[in-house]
Amino acid sequence: MDHLIFPTNENELAYESRRDFLKQSTMLTALVLTPAAILKAGENDENIASALEKLPLTLEVNGITHKLAVEPRVTLLDLLREQLHLTGTKKGCDHGQCGACTVHVNGARINSCLTLAIMQNGQKITTIEGLARGEQLHPMQEAFIKHDGFQCGYCTPGQIMSAVACINEGHANNRDEVREFMSGNICRCGAYPNIVDAILEVKQGGKKI
């Protein structure tokens, strides 16, 4: 068995050292860059404090107006999940590559992981929590259940938000168009055919969604 164990250890070693290196370099970045940032901000701008201050932010989320304070570096996704505890919106990749974080801003679908919350000041946000009317599920939610449009469910909130927008944009006229215009939502469980079925059914139902 030795010959099997050895390469594993080596891999682990390589992994550990890279992780340590990453940790160290992150710490170094934190040590070196943060004070420099403050100093630089002081040289160039009157207001040194603003680099670290929270900024006031007003957001309407699912019909409720929130007056908040955020650091500029907080993404809309993190604000929704961590400050407003709306954890229906998922963090998949955090880099715009999966669509799990899809929400609507003034009705248009976006990736909430790639926008800063402060940039959305004054906007109307709709998340997956905002679709149902009390106990009454949104037609798209019902269609996903009926057609088994998911397995693990992790991508589902993003898929449903994207699906609603896809129909409202007028991009759900046939299977191929739905596939193209839902390509920004990755499903690792591969529920794609059922997702397309669900969307086409809602589209053909013709209800305003």
Binding site: L33, K40, T75, H95, N111, M119
Partner: peptide
């Protein structure tokens, strides 16, 4: 923000303002 926020999260670029 679709490119810049990504690059900032990864530490590729770190604007102070």
């Amino acid at each position: 923000g679709t490119n810049l926020v990504d690059l900032m999260k990864r530490g590729v670029t770190a604007p102070q303002k």
